[in-house]
């Protein structure tokens, strides 16, 4: 039994080491891309800059260099460093049908980004909340109505009427 535990822990540690190595390599690639592509393309340097520290590119270059160095340190440590603490297996356990749940959440988030101007904030809030309640496993109609309809409408009214935030009203609520 103890040997089995030991082997499981070693496997988790090995996975953690691999994860760290992959992360380090990705960060080094990110730093290189930033240094050679993104910073030259994304930061314009005026001709009048006389000293290097006054250049708008100076600080981003320093930071990207730091990211590279720290990532390299992680890469080295993942090979020769002490074994990492094994992650908590119980906490890392995934929910059943998690890809479906994640996809539903991503769809709701995408809706929040794209649809408010077209649909209006209040109707979208109602639909999004009901959708997430259903994804979470809620099936009681009265609960879906109370939490999925009443609360979003109240929150909408709080922001528009009390805090005077101009929310997109959408075709349903637009005052004619």
């Amino acid at each position: 039994m103890e040997t089995h535990d030991h082997a499981a822990r070693d496997r988790l540690r090995l996975r953690q080491r691999r994860q760290d190595a992959v992360f380090a390599v990705l960060m080094m690639v990110f730093a290189v891309v930033m240094a050679f592509v993104v910073i030259p393309a994304g930061v314009r340097v005026p001709a009048s800059v006389a000293h290097l520290p006054l250049s708008p590119r100076f600080f981003p270059y320093v930071l990207v260099g730091m990211v590279f160095v720290f990532a390299a340190a992680i890469a080295v440590m993942s090979v020769i460093g002490p074994p990492p603490l094994p992650p908590d297996a119980e906490a890392a356990a995934l929910r059943p049908r998690w890809p479906l749940r994640l996809a539903a959440l991503l769809a709701v988030l995408a809706g929040w980004v794209v649809l408010p101007e077209r649909v209006g904030m209040a109707p979208l809030a109602v639909v999004a909340t009901i959708a997430l309640l259903l994804v979470g496993g809620e099936r009681r109609i009265w609960m879906l109505g109370a939490v999925g309809v009443v609360v979003p409408v109240l929150v909408y009214l709080l922001f528009t009427e009390v805090f005077h935030v101009p929310m997109p009203a959408g075709p349903l609520l637009e005052r004619r």
Binding site: W112, P116, L132, V147, V151, F159
Partner: peptide, 29 residues
């Protein structure tokens, strides 16, 4: 499972309220 959709609701409304622009919601996501 009831609280999380409401947290998201407040996150979106609160983020939007800062400058009243949907771009901030995209940044939040």
């Amino acid at each position: 499972h009831i609280l999380m959709p409401l947290v998201l609701l407040f996150c979106v409304f609160g983020t939007f309220a800062v400058q009243a622009q949907m771009f901030d919601v995209l940044v939040m996501v």
